[in-house]
Design a protein around this nucleic acid. Sequence first.
DNA 1: ACAGGTTACCTAGACTATCTAGGCAACGGG
DNA 2: CCCGTTGCCTAGATAGTCTAGGTAACCTGT
Lengths: 112, 112
Amino acid sequence: MPKRSSTLLHGTLDALILKALSYGKNHGYGVARWIEASSDEVVQVEEGSLYPALYRMERRGWIEAEWGLSELNRRAKLYAITERGCAQLAAETERWQVFTAAVSKVLLAAEA
Amino acid sequence: MPKRSSTLLHGTLDALILKALSYGKNHGYGVARWIEASSDEVVQVEEGSLYPALYRMERRGWIEAEWGLSELNRRAKLYAITERGCAQLAAETERWQVFTAAVSKVLLAAEA
DNA sequence: ACAGGTTACCTAGACTATCTAGGCAACGGG
DNA sequence: CCCGTTGCCTAGATAGTCTAGGTAACCTGT
């Protein structure tokens, strides 16, 4: 029995990662922390979901990786969003808005 | 490449079905049509998702089934929401609101 | 009479994204 | 010198959806 809203995350994680990277290069760990912080800890990013997602997205050309250093001068893989990634972010954000608006309308309608 | 917002539906279908049944008994086909209509066709309910979901939910005690007749006098399996189902609907709706509010905040924030 | 569309239900198997639960390595502070 | 944090990674389990089929009864139009 999942206490997490894990299933709700489905299909949303990619957009969140792209959004994080739209503010500039960052490494996986940093992206995760950023998403959690800016969602007031509502969205939890498990590393077992994060890294596979990053690979997926790199394979699809939405992001690019290079090895570098984190702010704390540690070895880190820095990801940057690509043009295709920007387009993807825009598209997914749009779809998300349409979808959630529709579901909200249904779910939050006054009881009969 | 899925053109559907299928992945976004993850974890939302149950709540939508419960909501549909909160207006009264209905059969699977009718529930699907109701969800699609009241979401302005944004949410598409595939039968291959619907029926497994109904079984799942019945197994969990959220809904109850009995054979009967549809409005068109056809053989149909009528589902009714249970008390536990009502509680589940309330809980899921709450989680949905919290989660989407958080994601919206992140996703729709002004670009840096 | 019959073709085709709608209503209504069902299922096996594929797919995909997530989570669980581990592991590795380097740094820094106490 | 230990332990928490930073940072990356992966195999396997899990869960929910979709694809693509199938069945059957009814109704309408030709």
